[in-house]
Design a protein around this nucleic acid. Structure first.
Length: 180
DNA sequence: ACGATGATGAAC
DNA sequence: TTCATCATCGTA
């Protein structure tokens, strides 16, 4: 069952926690592969100094100000695409960054997907996905509800990675990690 | 510990 | 138009 647009129109920290354990599905040439979402980060609002949106709207980050459920892709370090999903109502800039997923197929090497750049590379996700809707199957990328419930004790909180410049927001525990 | 690698945004 | 910066990763 695919998560609908309304799922993403909730508080960003809630979306971050609730998407853990859900299934990320990718369809390439009629082949569907599925992965458990295991790690995400929240980039929350105009005041979050770690967020691209903290210095106002630009050509790159304008998707973050858009409707919930839109895909925000950007390139870092000249070579890595980052996969984000926009949260909350239009006009409020926020998104979650997908940092790690785990293949349902146990035969596939998990280590290929345990990083935000590694997973986009594996799934063939690039700038073409920017501004597409993750709640539409024709995008070829969607999220399905949790196959089984998870406990709060399975969710670890941590500081976000690579944002030491973010002042008072540097130490926010806005990174969420799901472990079985 | 460090270099790869290029789009982005702000300054000039 | 230039220039510093960067929500990372693989190799050392």
């Amino acid at each position: 069952m695919m998560l609908s647009k309304s799922f993403y129109n909730q508080k960003t920290l809630l979306v971050a926690k609730n998407i853990l354990g859900c299934i990320l599905a990718r369809k390439i040439e009629n082949q569907i592969s599925k992965y458990i979402i295991t790690e995400v980060e929240a980039y929350n609002g105009p005041h979050d100094l770690a967020s691209h949106a903290s210095r106002g709207m630009t050509e790159r980050n304008k998707i973050m100000f858009g409707a919930p459920g839109l895909i925000y892709i950007y390139l870092v370090y000249g070579m890595h695409y980052m996969l984000n999903i926009v949260t909350e109502e239009e006009g409020y800039p926020a998104a979650i960054l997908i940092r790690a997923i785990e293949p349902l197929d146990e035969n596939i090497d998990k280590n290929l997907f345990n990083g935000p750049a590694k997973l986009t590379r594996q799934l063939g996700i690039n700038k073409n996905f920017n501004n597409l809707a993750i709640y539409k199957k024709e995008t070829g990328l969607w999220v399905e509800k949790r196959p089984e419930p998870i406990q709060n004790t399975q969710i670890k909180k941590a500081k976000r990675v690579g944002i030491d410049y973010a002042g008072e927001y540097r130490d926010k525990l806005w990174r969420f990690i799901y472990s079985k």
